[in-house]
Computed example of a mutant assay.
Amino acid sequence: MKTRFRWIIAAHLLLGAGIAGATDSSTPVGTWQQIDDVSGQPKSIIQISEVNGELQGKITQLMNLTPEEIARDGENPVCRKCEGVRKDEPIKGMVIMWGVKREGEVWQGGQILDPAKGKIYKVKLSLSESGQKLDVHGYIGISLLGRSQTWVRQEQ
């Protein structure tokens, strides 16, 4: 009887650990592969986290750097076109999205930085494909104008 009880306890502990490690697909919090809207190639890995009730995104890895980018900056490019505190800072490790809050089925109200252009845009996020894809729409003025990228959720 004691052995059966131990197996039941062990099964509950393993199940609990599996649930705790699972990705919540109902929120953008997690790790995402950014797919460039021009080239269609993966450009970076971005970690979205919740900080004080707001989402922020940080670049954790750069991918598919062009030969020109590597010749100019090596494997760790800096944000040459950025202004203020981000000017000439390494792009890897940079917070590029901040202040985003949930409003119904979308997350918006924050800003996103395009390190290649050094420009900051308003941002709107929406999940699709059962939370496995994230539509990231950056815009100036009204959200009907601007550009969108699709980010793909990465397993953790």
Results as ranks from 00 to 15, higher is better:
Ser143Ala: 11
Arg6Tyr: 13
Leu15Ser: 13
Asn52Gln: 12
Ile9Cys: 14
Gln33Glu: 15
Arg86Cys: 00
Gly21His: 12
Lys43Trp: 01
Lys2Ala: 13
Ile140Leu: 14
Thr3Gln: 14
His137Trp: 03
Asp73Ile: 02
Ser49Trp: 01
Ile96Lys: 06
Ser39Val: 11
Ala11Cys: 11
Ile8Leu: 15
Gly53Met: 11
Lys122Tyr: 03
Glu105Gly: 02
Thr66Glu: 11
Tyr139Met: 03
Met63Asp: 06
Gly40Gln: 10
Glu155Pro: 00
Tyr139Lys: 04
Gly146Val: 07
Ala116Leu: 09
Gly141Cys: 08
Gly99Leu: 02
Ala116His: 06
Ser49Pro: 00
Leu134Ile: 11
Leu144Tyr: 07
Ile8His: 02
Pro90Val: 09
Glu129Met: 09
Ile35Leu: 10
Ile112Pro: 01
Pro115Ala: 09
Pro77Ser: 13
Asp37Gly: 12
Gln108Tyr: 00
Glu83Trp: 01
Ser44Cys: 07
Arg147Met: 07
Val51Glu: 13
Gln154His: 04
Asp37Thr: 06
Leu145Phe: 14
Gly99Trp: 03
Lys92Cys: 08
Gly74His: 10
His137Gln: 10
Lys133Ser: 10
Gly138Cys: 07
Gln108Asp: 11
Cys79Met: 10
Thr31Phe: 01
Arg6Asn: 13
His12Thr: 14
Pro115Phe: 04
Arg80Asn: 12
Ile140Lys: 12
Leu65Asp: 03
Leu13Gln: 11
Lys92Tyr: 03
Gln154Ile: 14
Lys87Trp: 09
Ser44His: 09
Glu89Gly: 00
Gly118Leu: 06
Trp151Ser: 08
Gly93Ser: 09
Ala22Phe: 05
Ile112Tyr: 01
Gly74Tyr: 10
Pro28Gln: 06
Gly74Cys: 12
Lys133His: 08
Pro115His: 04
Arg86Val: 00
Val29Cys: 06
Lys133Thr: 12
Gly16His: 08
Glu69Asn: 03
Leu14His: 02
Gly138Ile: 02
Gly84Val: 04
Ser148Val: 02
Lys133Glu: 14
Arg102Ser: 05
Arg6His: 10
Ala10Tyr: 07
Gln34Thr: 11
Trp107Asn: 05
Ala71Thr: 13
Ser128Phe: 07
Ser148Met: 04
Glu50Phe: 01
Ser128Glu: 14
Trp98His: 03
Lys87Ser: 15
Glu54Met: 04
Lys117Arg: 13
Met94Asn: 08
Glu105Phe: 01
Ala116Lys: 13
Gln111Asp: 11
Gly104Phe: 00
Gln154Lys: 15
Trp151Tyr: 05
Tyr121Arg: 10
Ser130Tyr: 06
Glu103Val: 08
Arg72Ile: 03
Lys81Tyr: 13
Leu15Cys: 14
Gly40Cys: 09
Trp7Gln: 14
Gln149Asp: 08
Ile70Ala: 10
Tyr139Thr: 06
Met63His: 04
Ile46Ala: 02
Val51Ala: 11
Ser49Arg: 12
Thr150Gly: 02
Cys79Arg: 07
Val51Lys: 14
Ala116Trp: 01
Glu129Asp: 15
Asp36Tyr: 05
Asn76Cys: 00
Ser44Ile: 02
Ile112Asp: 01
Trp7Pro: 00
